[in-house]
Design a protein around this nucleic acid. Structure first.
Length: 302
DNA sequence: TTCCAGGCAGTAG
DNA sequence: CTACTGCATGGA
């Protein structure tokens, strides 16, 4: 890491494409928790409780990160770097995964067409869980609209050039809401109950990223997550993949995953669970990345 | 009109 | 154990 004023450069060695990552972030859903302006990303991030706006641009085999709205301290820059490394999964060496793609009968196209795509994470576990609840069983466009309403009503924000940038709401705040507050935002009664219940667990300290990470293996982590009302197998796997960056997760039942597999395998209906398991078998230890690359086949330009 | 979206819990048999 | 149902909304 190089420090210079309010900037930091993060090296991106190996299989990495800023364009592919940017393309994922800007795939047409109007996310309210970051903004894409040309070739740069603007991401609000709380650093030691301080509202910070990060600007991320592509550098020379690196990401150039700048603080837009505030003076950067050295610990602040280190926290910003840690967040971005996690967000873009920069510590991962993808060569073994690309080797598996190249050995597969149907998938070598992925390493060419999606070269450098990373598993873009959701480092905040509370945000990841809420996002899953919101996204369950509705189309993604509507899910993004619901998330925006939640964030704009209950999150804090910071203004920069007279435009607001939002932070995801704190669990302590959402824990105090009534179901009708969220129903007013077009949440279903169940989704409102689930989000408030999860917020309470975080607010009380009975659930945290650290406590989940302390579990000895994947099945213990899944077990803890599925105890939560509103969290099933799909959500638990999605969260382990996107927030804890586990590499061995398959969100069974995911409609996008089913559609991608049906298309690639030429099935006329959705694959059975056994068919999914069989397809993923050669990718042991890289299941999460295969999921990301299968989802990538669903978006327009190939 | 009906069906289905990046599911899940509750209930009945 | 499996099968079925309601949930909110909107686009196909």
């Amino acid at each position: 890491m190089k420090l210079s004023g309010t900037k930091v450069n993060i090296a991106t060695s190996g299989i990495f494409s800023f364009k592919e990552c940017l393309r994922f972030l800007d795939r047409g859903y109007d996310d309210c928790l970051y903004s894409i302006e040309g070739n740069r990303i603007i991401k609000p991030l709380l650093i030691d409780g301080h509202k910070t706006l990060l600007q991320i641009k592509e550098g020379n085999h690196s990401l150039e990160v700048a603080f837009l709205n505030t003076e950067a301290t050295e610990p602040g820059l280190e926290q910003a770097e840690a967040f971005i490394v996690e967000w873009f999964d920069l510590d991962r060496e993808l060569q073994p995964f690309y080797q598996l793609l190249s050995e597969h009968s149907l998938l070598p196209f992925m390493s060419r067409e999606f070269f450098g795509l990373r598993l873009m994470g959701i480092p905040d576990l509370f945000e990841a869980l809420c996002w899953c609840i919101i996204g369950q069983q509705i189309n993604l466009a509507f899910a993004h609209r619901l998330k925006r309403k939640l964030v704009e009503n209950y999150g804090t924000s910071i203004n920069y050039y007279s435009r607001p940038y939002y932070f995801f709401p704190e669990p302590e705040l959402l824990a105090g809401l009534n179901v009708r507050d969220l129903k007013a935002l077009q949440f279903s009664r169940q989704k409102a109950e689930y989000v408030i219940g999860i917020a309470k667990e975080f607010a009380e300290g009975s659930l945290s990223k650290a406590s989940l990470r302390n579990r000895v293996n994947r099945s213990q982590m899944l077990k803890r997550l599925i105890e939560i009302r509103g969290v099933g197998e799909w959500t638990a796997n999605y969260v382990l993949m996107k927030s804890l960056k586990r590499m061995d997760c398959i969100p069974y039942g995911d409609s996008g995953l089913n559609n991608a597999l049906s298309s690639i395998l030429g099935l006329d209906k959705k694959p059975t669970r056994t068919e999914v398991e069989t397809f993923f078998e050669p990718f042991a230890g890289w299941e999460s990345y295969l999921v990301i690359y299968l989802w990538r086949t669903l978006s327009s330009s190939r």
